[in-house]
């Protein structure tokens, strides 16, 4: 497979995530859209790591680094999700709503 197909797939997934984050008001769905974007980027990173190997004269280590990077992204995403969902729960408890527009309280 050529790299471009992975590229376009990642872009499509990422843009769907962006559109979802822009159009939805449910904070859980917005949050899921963000996860979607993260995953599209992960996919692209893995594809690049595989592409990297086909360039002559590169060592396998640099390709491995990319996948380690993806691994760490997953770690951070897991941590982020746990905190983010805790925030959503607290917000629901306080406002009886998970509408993202209720999160503008910081404004005042």
């Amino acid at each position: 497979m050529e790299i471009k197909w992975y590229l376009f797939l990642s872009i499509i997934l990422f843009c769907i995530g962006v559109a979802g984050a822009l159009t939805r008001r449910n904070s859980i769905i917005v949050f899921m859209c963000i996860e979607l974007m993260l995953n599209s980027v992960n996919l692209l990173l893995v594809a690049f790591s595989k592409m990297h190997l086909s360039i002559p004269g590169t060592s396998a280590y640099s390709a491995i680094d990319a996948q380690i990077f993806v691994f760490f992204i997953m770690i951070v995403a897991a941590a982020e999700v746990s905190v983010g969902l805790a925030i959503i729960v607290m917000m629901y408890r306080n406002t009886k709503s998970i509408d993202i527009n209720f999160l503008n309280r910081l404004k005042n």
């Binding site: 962006v18 984050a21 822009l22 917005v30 993202i100 999160l103 503008n104 309280r105 404004k107």
Partner: peptide
Amino acid sequence: LQSGFVGNYILLMV
């Protein structure tokens, strides 16, 4: 612009 609405921020970012 600083509406506090996260959606607006993302929109502007995009």
